[in-house]
């Protein structure tokens, strides 16, 4: 950008490098020139500052303070919290339960995210055509998402109940033995993934639908004339055209998956009080966030929990980065 264009967009800025003489030109409101200049250059920053101030107070400060806490033997109830350097991190990396939680998080995340996004894509594709009662269909998609997570998990947990659950009742009709859903790693992960899918599939479908509406009709018309089927149009036109949206949903879903806590916590409450924070008797479905909660808010070991939080933060960045690269490399047919 040339100096000229700057002076066009900011008409009263000094044209040369000379320091303006005080009082030489009483600018707007009769203020001295430096003040006016300061005000002018500060205005945009003032405008965006509320977000950054709030972020600093509620995002950045906790982040840094958590790092500080993680370097201490910090018990919530004790009055002395000695500095212990990186000891918490060493202990954490040696803790099999932490890695177990990391595995569970990844497993539940994959089990829920992939079918969820694929299903959302198909749903959006089906809805992206003239339909009767369009609004009703779209609202229906969002309904599971506005339901409270507690209500969803409590109801699903009852469906998955071992003794009196509906799922086992139906399985029994087909001669399948009742499944103790909380007892095994695979069954518990599937149950939790289903709860997550129930809540988020419709939400993602709506986002896809919005993106699909922006895809030019002509492409579909041309494809139809060429004899391309609906599935082929989805694969060859829709997906490549809405790829930025897909990347967005993949990242948001990944972040969401890394933070799953309410589902396993309430699902475990079906087994016993104690198995609730441990995510099952054998930590079959304890996620990272739940592990953090157990350490921080049941054992009150805040230093250790803070270390876990930081490692979790880095893991989220890592997984999101990998996902981003993978999805970006997926080439659609149009390019």
């Amino acid at each position: 950008m040339s100096r000229q264009s700057v002076s066009v967009t900011r008409p009263s800025a000094p044209e040369d490098g000379h320091p303006p003489a005080p009082g030489r030109a009483a600018g707007a409101g009769g203020l001295p020139r430096p003040v006016v200049r300061l005000g002018r250059s500060a205005t945009p920053y003032t405008f965006v500052s509320p977000f950054f101030l709030l972020f600093a107070a509620f995002g950045l400060f906790p982040l840094i303070y958590t790092a500080w806490v993680s370097l201490h033997d910090w018990n919530l109830l004790s009055s002395e919290n000695p500095f212990i350097g990186l000891e918490n991190y060493g202990e954490l990396f040696a803790d099999g339960y932490f890695w177990n939680a990391a595995f569970n998080t990844l497993s539940v995340g994959l089990l829920s995210a992939i079918p969820q996004l694929a299903l959302a894509l198909v749903l959006a594709h089906l809805l992206n055509r003239p339909l009767r009662a369009q609004t009703m269909w779209r609202i229906t998609l969002l309904l599971p998402n506005v339901t409270s997570v507690v209500a969803v998990v409590v109801i699903f947990s009852q469906l998955f109940g071992r003794e009196f659950g509906l799922v086992n009742l139906v399985l029994g009709v087909f001669g399948v033995d009742p499944v103790n859903w909380q007892a095994d790693v695979a069954s518990s992960h599937i149950a939790i993934a289903l709860m997550i899918m129930w809540r988020w599939t419709g939400y993602n479908a709506l986002i896809y639908l919005a993106a699909m509406q922006a895809v030019p009709r002509e492409l579909y018309e041309a494809a139809t004339i060429d004899g391309a089927s609906g599935a082929r149009q989805l694969r060859r036109i829709t997906i490549p055209m809405i790829r930025p949206t897909i990347i967005f949903t993949v990242i948001v879903t990944t972040i969401g998956s890394m933070q799953i806590i309410a589902e396993p916590l309430l699902f475990g409450a079906q087994v016993s009080n104690g198995a609730s924070v441990t995510g099952g008797t054998d930590r079959q479905f304890q996620t990272l966030a739940l592990y953090l909660y157990e350490k921080g808010f049941r054992s009150f070991e805040f230093g250790y929990a803070s270390a876990a939080a930081w490692v979790m933060f880095l893991l989220v960045i890592l997984v999101v980065g990998v996902n981003y690269l993978v999805v970006r490399r997926m080439r659609g047919g149009l390019e």
């Binding site: 103790n180 007892a183 016993s272 009080n273 924070v277 441990t278 054998d282």
Partner: peptide
């Protein structure tokens, strides 16, 4: 001081036996 956590560990142990995991 940590009665609750000890009981949770024991209770989960019995739970694992009961679920046939161990």
């Amino acid at each position: 001081p940590r009665e609750g956590d000890v009981r949770t560990a024991i209770g989960n142990g019995l739970g694992r036996v009961e679920q046939g995991r161990q």
